[in-house]
Structure formats: C-alpha cells, structure tokens
Design a protein around this nucleic acid. Sequence first.
RNA 1: GGUCCUGUGGCCGAGCGGCUAGGCUGAGCUCUGCAAAAGCUCCUACAGCGGUUCGAAUCCGCUCGGGACCUCCA
Length: 508
Amino acid sequence: MQPLFIYNTVTRKKEEFKPINPPFVGFYVCGPTLYSDVHIGNCRTFTSFDIMYRYLLHLGYKVRYVRNITDVGHLEDEVAGEGEDRIGKQARIKQLEPMEIVQRYSFGFREVMSLLNTLPPSIEPTASGHIPEQIEMIENIIKNGFAYVEDGNVYFNVEKFAEANNYGILSGRSIEDQLNNTRDLDGQQEKKGRLDFALWKKAKPEHIMRWKSPWSIGFPGWHIECSAMSQKYLGNTFDIHGGGMDLIPTHHTNEIAQSVGCCGQAPVNYWVHTNMLTLNGQKMSRSLGNVFLPVELFTGKKLSSNSPSATPSQAILEDKHPLFDKAFSPMAVRFFMMQTHYRSTLDFSNEALTASEKGFERIIDAFKTLQNLTSSNSSSEDIKALQQKCYDAMNDDFNTPVLIANLFDAVRIINSCNDKKLNLTQNDIEVLKTIYNDFVFNIMGLKLEEANNKANNVLDNVVNVLLNMRNQAKTDKNFTLSDEIRNKLIEAGIQIKDSKEGSTWKLN
RNA sequence: GGUCCUGUGGCCGAGCGGCUAGGCUGAGCUCUGCAAAAGCUCCUACAGCGGUUCGAAUCCGCUCGGGACCUCCA
C-alpha cells in the first residue's frame, strides 16, 4: 500500500498515516448545523473531506465515515450558554416543528452534496437521536470530577481539566493565555471559570426541544454530541477527525476535553482541518452575511426571497446574480475547489472559476480523445512514471493541485499522440485510461456532465447529418455552404472540431 | 489588545535549501480552403530590507500589506 502522509493539526506536521486497526479506518467529520441552507463555503469543506474519503477507499481501506447532523443544542451565544437554540428559533419564526426545519435543510444539503458528486457518509447521526448517549457521557465526566451541576445546568470545568491535561493541545494556546486574553463577555454568572462550557442546559419555558435528564428537563450542549457519537460509532480512540479550521479553538478543543474527561484517553490520532472559502478576501460565513448558495452558483441566478427553500430542485430563482458572470456547473465548481489545496484559503472569483472551467473541459475532452487513440509498437513517454507522480501528489497530504498538474501532462500527451506527434503503446493507453478512471473519476470524483438520454442521442444524430453535409460541401469546394453550416451551428451553441480523421463536435 | 497563518509572473495557484509545477489570459508558429480545436514556442515571478549558507521563493530577524481565531460559524 502507498504510504500516505497527512497533516496533523496536533503536531503541525505531516505524519505517515497508520490506522489503529488496518484495513479499517474510523473517520469522523463535523457536519452542518441545519438551521438554514448550507452555503458554498460549507460545501468546500465537505468536498475536501470527500476527496480524502475517496482516496482512502481507493487505497483499499475499509472506511467508516461518520458525518453528523447537528439538529439541537447549538445556541446563538455559545460562550455564555445563553440565547435560543438555533434550530428552535427558526422553528418558532417559521411556525414549524424543529424536525421540519431540520428535514427541510437536510434534504437541501444532501441534494447539493449529491450534485457535487460527494459520496454519502457511512453513518449520518443526528444529535437529537443520541440524547441517552450524551447523558451517559456527561454522567461519566461528572463522575470523573471534570464537570459540575449548577441549577439544572451542567458545565465542564476547564481549569480543573487543565491541571493535568493540555487543554490547548489543538489550538496551541496556553490556558493562561486563553484566560487572560479573552474579550469581555456577558452571561457568565453561573460558570465557575470563563472557559467553562455547557454540557447540559436546562430548558427555558419557550424552548421547544427538551428531554429528561438527571439534572433538568433540557437539552445537550453543542460540543457533546460529536464526542458521544464519534465514541459510539468509532470507539474511544479512532483514526481521523476532520472539520473546518474555525472549529479548532472551541468545538474541537472542547471535544477533546470531554472525551479525555470521560474516558481518560485522546479520542483522535489525526486531526485534519480544512481552510475557509473567502469572498473578496473575507471569510464566507453565515454570521457575516456574505454568503451565496450553491443553487445560485449553479444557475447564475439569485434565489427569490419568496422561494420556500434553496434546494436546487425546488428553488424559485430571480434574475441574474450580481456576483456571477454566468452559471457554473457543479463539476466545474468541484474542479475549481480541487485546484487549491484544502489547507489554503480558496478565494472565489469569476475569473478563477472561468479559468478552472476551461481547464476542466480540456481534461474531459482529452478523455474522449483517449478512447480513440491509435497505438504504436514503441513509446516515447513514461506513462508509469506519470501514474506514480499522481500517487505521490495524493500521498503528500492529498495534494490535488499537484495531481491536477500531472493530469494536464497526461492531457498534453494524449493530444500529442492524437496529432501523431508522439507514440504510445497499447499498454500506455491502457495505463492512461486507468489514470483517468482512478484519479479523475474515482478519487477526484469528477464525472461527465452530459446526460446520455434519448434527446441527446437524437441531437447527436442530427448534428452528424449536418456535419456530413458540410463535409460533402467541403469536398465539392463549396466553402460558402460549408462555412454557413459551421457558423449556424456555432450560433446554435455547437462547436466543431476538424481533424484529419473527420469532424467532431461539442456543446459550447 | 493577544495568538496564529499568509504575501509567488496579467489572473488563479503549487512549492517545505540546489534541479526554477500546472491552469487561464496574451503573442508568434505548425496544421487548416479559411477558421475553430490541438500541438509547439515566448512573456520566468517569488512584498521590502537585512542576515545564515557554497547556494534561499523556501531558514532567521525587522518593516509594510492581507487574513483567521480569541463570541456562533465548515
């Protein structure tokens, strides 16, 4: 098996990946809080982890990929432990059951992720479906002396925990630093320490979602769900835990504290974090309001304010979106995301996206050319070496930009062979097909977008009739007619490519 | 204010001490009836100033930009 190196946030180094129980791999990713539609920045994160999941599968690992859905417990003001539950608030505003809110947005979330061709996780557990597990974990944390009860609320005692443990192991910040350099905050009256966080909250009367617990009728804190669910499905210590970088200092830091506080062992061997998607250099986030939605990017249009949802198949759209020059297909967007490494910020712009789209088309066009390549007895290229370079790129912390650079080498070789400017053996051609199948389709998760339906077959036939007429005109040196056919087809959105073997076409 | 990350050619974006990715754009050439497509060639950059080194985009220091986190966020 290829040695794979993964950047570990804990050590801040790339480390060789060694699973606890090969070939099994436990992989947990913090999923979305479904109180509104996911935006394209959320999608970037889940797409990045999809590449990792796909590559691990390709390498032969048996991966259990768990990605949670947060449907309860995420307060508007986490640090104070105050404010409404985010989902409960939307439920109240929209006069729906909280589960209706979650159902609506999880439907949209899944549809968008499916359009982006991400594989579904093995398990998608919800926080509300794991209340007993969370209560049991809280009981253990209390038993171990790391949490205290205050008027029906349970808080994690961070300073107590930090006496014997490195609380800031992920963020690299010392406990003193965190205690002393925090902004002034309100609503801290119940907590003993300013870094303490809620494990269980007593429900106020207006709170819709509530469960019985030993401490009060209430609901779990935000961080405990991931600790409880990852432990349930992956064990006390598992291989990889991922999430957005913005989760490092609070959510993941507290997750570690809870798990260690409960079980006395580090929950995760490799912590992996993806960088943010930015818009004009600024992080895209729901709280900043600078978000746009996948459906808007895929259509180039603005979501109508009276659209019941942003689920692509149901969205009501208005005029052209002010941010986009045009629509960008999900696969072009996916390719665009992969041209930047997952640990770098990805800045959105029409120019960058258009450039990616063209590059992606070139890769797909070369794949079609590859199917009809003529082989030679000798070869002028080292295709096996190219294949290994593709693996080297992925083994180096999932370096998709370098992988793509290597694939463009393959594109050049394919096109040159097609132009009879270099030679490939039949075996080379088979290896190139394997490279495409493995890296482009299976690992990067790209796919051909034209639907192979009846209408397309008819179109294919119709265009071929016209191309034959044009070729006859060319043979007859009737260039007025041949050019007219070409120009009319271009106007109709069809681009013709002539070659020695004949003419092909594609949609523009 | 504190902690950390970052600054690469017209644009995007790799790079982790030597062999100067890749894409997009632009120019020229080949092919072509003319185009398009494709191929080839060219435009060879590392914010600034110092330092370490035989050698630095890459390490160190300072200066100036940009960003993230320290409150919820993927």
